[in-house]
Amino acid sequence: MRATKLHADAFSGCNPIVNFMYFAFVLGITIFFLHPVLLGISFVSGMVYSIYLNGGKAVKFNLAFLLPLMVAAAVINPAFNHQGVTILTYVRMNPITLESILYGIAAAVMIGSVILWFSCYNAVMTSDKFLYLFGRIIPALSLIISMALRFVPRYKAQIKRITNAQRGIGRDVSSGNVIVRIRSGLSILSILVTWALENAIETADSMKSRGYGLKGRTAYSNFRFDFRDRILVVAMLLFFAGIIASIALHRLSVLYFPAFVINVPDGFVLVAYAEYLIICTLPLMLDIREDLIWRTLRLKIVSSGNKSSNGADV
C-alpha cells in the first residue's frame, strides 16, 4: 500500500495466488534448506529483484541494514558454536572451527535472502492481494484487517488534528522532558480512543445497514485468473516438486557438523539447481520479457509514425 514502484512490474500484475505461492516456495526453500548453492541462487536473485522493484532505496537499505546484520550473523556462529572437526585456531581457549565458520556464512546468507525476499514481498503483495487470498478463508479477520488499514491513516491524521487543537487551548505537547512528553502523548491518545470508539458505532451501523451478518456472504475481487497465471502455477508446481524430490532422495544434501559434507554435483543435481534458478529468477524473466515487448512496440510506433508522415509528404 505504501510501495511506490519505479516501473510497472510484470510479476505484480499476475494473480495474487501466483504471487503468494511464489513467495511461499522461495521463502520456504530459503529458510528450510541451508544448502550453499540454493542459498547463493536465492540471495543473488532476491538482491537483483529487490533492486529492480525498489531501485536506489533498496541499495541504500542493503548497505546500511542488511550488510551489518549479515556480518553479525557470520561472526556470532563461530564465536559461540565450537562444534566441527576442523579446528583452525583458538580464541581464549575456545576452538574456532571451519565448519562453524561455514555455517555462519550460510546462516548470514539465509537471513540476508529472507530479508531481501520480504522486501520484494512487501512491494508485490499489496493489502488488496492479501485480502483477496484470505477473504474467503478467514472472512471476519480479513474484514478487520481491511478496516484497520482504513482506520490507521485516519487516526494518524486525527492525532495531528488533536495535537493542533490542544495547542490552540494552551496544551503544547512538543515541549518538556520525556515524562511530560509521554504524559501529553497519552492525553492525546486518550482523546483519540474516545473519538475512535464513539465514531466507530456509526461504522457498525453502516455495516449492518448494508446487510453484514447475513448468511452466505461472498468475497468480491477485481482479480482474474487467466491463462498466463495457470501456466505459471503449473510450472512452479513442477519445478518445486522436482526440487523437493531431489531433497527427499538425498541428492541435494548438506551437512555442516561434525564435518562439512555436500552432495556431488552430478547431472541430476545440476538439473535441480537449474530448476531453482528458474524459479528464483521467474519474476525477473517476466519483467525482461515485458520490457523487450515494450521496446519493440515503441519502435513500431515510432517507425509507423515516420512512415505516415513520409506518406503525407508524398
Binding site: M147, L192, A200
Partner: peptide
Amino acid sequence: ARELVIIAVLVAIAVAGRTA
C-alpha cells in the same frame, strides 16, 4: 459487526498510537 468494528478500532489505535 459491532464486535468486528471495536476490534478493528483497537488494532488501529495500537498501530497508529505510535504517532502520538
